[in-house]
Design a protein around this nucleic acid. Sequence first.
RNA 1: GCCGAGAUGGCGGAACUGGCAGACGCGCUGGACUCAAAAUCCAGUGAACCGGAAAGGUUCGUGUGGGUUCGAUUCCCACUCUCGGCACCA
Length: 814
Amino acid sequence: MYDHDKIESKWQKKWEESGIFHNPNHSDKPKYYSLVMFPYPSGTLHVGHVKNYTIGDVVSRYKRMQGYNVMNPFGYDAFGLPAENAAIAHGNIHPEDWTRSNITTIRNQIKKLGISYDWNRETITFEESYYKWTQWIFLKLYEKGLAYKKSGPVNWCPSCKTVLANEQVVDGKCERCGTPVAIKQLDQWYFKITDYAEELDTFIDKLTGWPENVKTMQKNWIGKSTGAEVNFKIKETGKTLKIFTTRPDTLWGVTFMAIAPESPLLSELTSISKQREVEGFLTRINSTENRFERFSTDAPKEGVFLGTHAINPVNGEEIPIYVANYILYEYGTGAIMAVPAHDTRDYAFAKKYSLPIREVVACDQPPYAGEGMLKDSGPFTGTKSNEAMDKIIEYLEERKIGKRAVNYKLRDWLISRQRYWGAPIPVVYCDKCGIVPVPGKNLPVKLPRDVKFDPTGKSPLSYDENFLHTTCPKCGEPAIRESDTMDTFVDSSWYYLRYVNPKEREKPFIKSDVDEWLPVDQYIGGVEHAILHLLYSRFITKVLRDGGYLSFDEPFKNLFTQGMIYKDGAKMSKSKGNIVSPDEMVEKYGADTLRLYILFMGPPEKDAEWLESGIEGVYRFVFKLWGLFENILPLTKSNHGMKRDLSDEEYEIRRKLHMILKKITNDIEGAFRFNTVVSGFMELVNIFSDYVKSMPADRLNVELLDEFSHKFVPALSPFAPHVAEELWEMMDEKPFVTNVNWPSYDEDAIKPRKIEIALMINGKVRSKIVIDADLSEDEIRQIALNNDKIKSTLNGKNPKKVFVAAGNVVNIVT
RNA sequence: GCCGAGAUGGCGGAACUGGCAGACGCGCUGGACUCAAAAUCCAGUGAACCGGAAAGGUUCGUGUGGGUUCGAUUCCCACUCUCGGCACCA
């Protein structure tokens, strides 16, 4: 009788005792780094996590069987808001204790799933031995001028009581809790990711192992656009107003200028007579309930004439300058040249204020933003707009009125957080010396344990006098520590490096080791990190490379984003109460069944609906498989070595065995089509069950059964490792099946003796016949034409043409 | 609006470089076992129709409309819908 409980705990113990999943950093075998996105331990795991880890485990175990030295590590993204919020909600439990207890739970859950992690590499981001190096990374960025403090408008979540990065604001709401985000003016720390915008953009094309949608999302987020910067003189002041445009070819169509309400240029561009009107406008748009209304695409375009004029450098025209609500201060220069005929927004604005609309690209009707023949454009009249682009930029450069320019939507990464549970930013403020970074030898700046961490909007650490007061590392005078902590995305931007040398005390990692192991060969996780984590990690990798700490450009060679598991048509969440717990499933059906079912649900990159009846079907399969081996093993053991030629039926069964083995191998290698791998296992079990039942035991071909069991069990082991080990042992083979080579298939065995081909008349199947596989096309044609059924259907008519597709069909056209 | 992915039985999904659509599983139907049920096992299961039932046969069928081809789920064109991302980025 199959007893999953007994088998699974038995092998989990044996694996642990033998240490077979610990991998050395150096070995004769080629390396393979398999990585799953580590979890946020804010609760327990659900089956959605299990999907992630199962896919990673199958890849790891498969690669191990193919002779690789596989690194398959695990850890916890253990700092951060959810842990802190949950700790507060659960009474006054300390976030550390709370998180640790979650980690213990999760670790046990994972061990029961039979995942082959190297637990020696386990990494927890809140440990001093880890965040010391997170702080070290901050210092490296600071040294290179890539970490800086500035005051400006920031996203503020009133519920989480902290600032957020742009990437953490979704539809104007906090990515985490859904509260509408407010804007505050604050002095905050930033990482200068914009310095790497160009490389982050262009290197996306080199990420051939990444899904297309993730690459597109990153491209969009970085938002590179090329064009020109053009200088417009201000008639009244003689100063210059710079603008960025992607359409320098429409310069002759400019009929007004517009600047952002937040622009510092606003006051000097406002004439005295217009001041009152402009102030009224500012008050009105700033008082709008939701500032995101102003920034939505369909908000009405509004503005006020400033009473001043710009001079178009290409034709000397005087044009009015407006302040307008649709101009973004943070993008480009915060000011635009407006071409109403060729931009829908400028068009709407011009219509509203009756401004001239001048067509300079031939079109049926403005607004037209496409390409076309230029007209009324001075020396460029008659040139195609796309061809004129470069020439016009050269024209501007020659006359020193403009230059080629590139702009990005990407903004710098705001990393300060006004919360307790994170790595302290390692700087102090000294009255004499200003901002002073904490020297590397003084790291870590320890996060004190006993702090009141209720969110007040001010950093909890700022109330801790012991923490706050220190001495300046430079002059030794009293100084104050920075009390903000770092965004947890800083922690997770380098954990994949730490796994290589998790116990290293002198450095975050050893360069030669990391250079050997990275990039990660296969990264697996949810698509929700398409921008945030994956972009930050790419950035940090490049910064460390430029600092000489790494020698590779990109951290993740191949990326796979698995789909989510839904229950009752919705995402699993505690509040909906539709969580499927892996513990319950393991207890009821066993880890092997759970793993197989999760893979069988559908293509792994797609979302899938959890169905209890589905897992029961897989459970039946495991039972059937077990029963088959209970029948086979006594035969193969007693008659081992007895040989007999294969009958046609047996030849066909053996052919299927090798065919499916080949298919399984291809399905793993190709696009992780594990659902069809599992169905392949089912087919084999069905075929062999039918065979065993088809004749008395003493007439079965034992050699065939022996071959089957020695191919099937190793192939099964990455997917259902416990039952595979148990069967392997029952076959009197030495443990562990986990360590044997991936089963090969024999191309010769796949060649059929006989084939069935369809006989078609005008594309419709009229008959099917079985013929020898080695017949020539002519022979097949003759057989087809002499077939009774074909003859009677043809009814004496002469076929016009006969197509023979070898091994498939014969199509007779009349 | 822009970008990306997709649409196949009652359901999840298969189908190699264009070659017998619906593998595998779920569900359903019938049967065996049982006093009965559950579990298990066996058989059937795209739709409509012809046939006395059976054997068998015909037509239609991969979102819609066209096209290429002896032959299209697969290639081309147009459209509809669904999902995901971005969204006043000049």
